[in-house]
Design a protein around this nucleic acid. Structure first.
Lengths: 232, 232
DNA sequence: CGCAACTCTCAGGTTTCTCTCAGAAACGCC
DNA sequence: GGCGTTTCTGAGAGAAACCTGAGAGTTGCG
């Protein structure tokens, strides 16, 4: 029983592929999802459906994302928004959003990053769900809030990609994940290369995480990778 | 009383041999199966018959597999798909599949692998079927989710082929399986060698599974092999 | 601008897996 | 016990999967 059950999320994007991708991923996480393609219909949907969160593309054919937010605010609805923006879009207006409980994500993003942000925003605005901050397995732990990674208490510095990959393995500890699954969840949705990059990043992680301790990152030949203690 | 009873699966492949093979195997597992040879008829069949899963060849004479999925999605049908793809077709367009609960399998595959994937996809999309994750006999157990194999609690590392073979014996525990049956289920359907390879792999398994414990893998001379406790 | 950090590709080296084969061992039958 | 048949298992070739260092291209930042 997901704690996300019953949480309504409205996804607004005019590219059907993106809207679908996001909706599918969030539905799989147990959220109730609706999609809209325009600012106008989005505003209507918020009024009628009262979602707890809106995932909102900044660039829309009619009214732009900020205007949508503005309109909702004037409505008196204080629904938090996770903005999606293209990389080269002005980020000035987007910066500073994190103060109001909102957040943003630049396209292209990875599914896991999106889900993590969604949860983070919900956590901030619906404090009942106070858990899920720390994930740990054996002597390895991650703090979702601060992005702190520790092995046996010692802090480890990870690059963004390394962090998302390790978190994915940690969330699925003891479960073998195929390279295809890892690619789908960790890499940006438009990544075009093949699965060999996963090998490279596993190698990076091993050097940082498994350097002088029991190796937790295991290769399962012909299948994928697992995070698992050797005697577990 | 298979729990798979009443579960409808549509198999779509233009090679009659493959479609037949798959359909027969799934019927034997207790599923309701229909087969179609083209994308067009497949879409119609989904509309009329509403299967819980579609096994779909990517390469079809008329509309290709991805287009079929696209069409179903636009229909608003959220039926999960297990794609079949040729070995050298993989990786390009298959990205993103594991997000929506879909999956893929490269030809040639083994029957047991196919059945395992079908069950995995159904498990993800129809969570009522929460059991069947673990299969066990005596002190030997397999966890399908984590791919864990244990004998008397101790973990055992198996290669992919060893794993599929052991799982086959375990699922059919106490039933003698002929070398021909084992070949048909465990090895890829186009395997050309003879049955002596089964002997080799049984030997590998014995070394790993029956090493220092009551031997569970029994030879039935002139017939085949069984997984069975000596006093059972 | 220049530097540092990061991402991704590639290729050579290494490990592991699959499958074949052949001699040894075990078995069933007479 | 002797004999033909079946099974067992070690050795090894070839293929596949994986690891990792080097380096090119980007991005971000001072």
């Amino acid at each position: 029983m997901h704690e996300s059950e019953g949480t309504r999320i409205l996804v607004v994007d005019d590219e059907p592929n993106i809207a679908d991708l996001v909706a599918t991923a969030l539905r799989y996480e147990g959220f109730d999802v609706q999609t809209k393609a325009t600012g106008r219909t989005a505003v209507d949907a918020v009024r009628e459906w009262s979602p707890q969160l809106v995932v909102l593309d900044v660039m829309l054919p009619d009214v732009d994302g900020f205007a949508v937010q503005e309109r909702l605010r004037r409505d008196g609805r204080r629904v938090p928004v996770l903005f999606l923006t293209a990389r080269d879009t002005v980020e000035d207006r987007v910066r500073g959003l994190t103060l109001g409980g909102d957040d943003y994500l630049t396209k292209p993003f990875s599914i896991d990053e999106l889900v993590a942000r969604v949860r983070a925003v919900l956590r901030r605005t619906q404090p009942e769900d106070a858990s899920r901050e720390r994930i740990s397995y054996f002597d390895l732990e991650i703090d979702e809030g601060t992005r702190d990674v520790r092995r046996a208490g010692r802090r480890i510095d990870l690059s963004p990609t390394e962090y998302v990959l390790l978190r994915y393995l940690l969330v699925n500890a003891r479960r073998v994940m195929s390279k295809a699954q890892i690619l789908d969840h960790v890499w940006q949705y438009d990544f075009g290369g093949d699965g060999r990059i996963v090998e490279t990043y596993i190698s990076y992680l091993r050097k940082k995480v498994d350097a002088d301790a029991v190796p937790l990152i295991q290769t399962v030949r012909g299948v994928g990778y697992v995070l698992r203690h050797p005697e577990d």
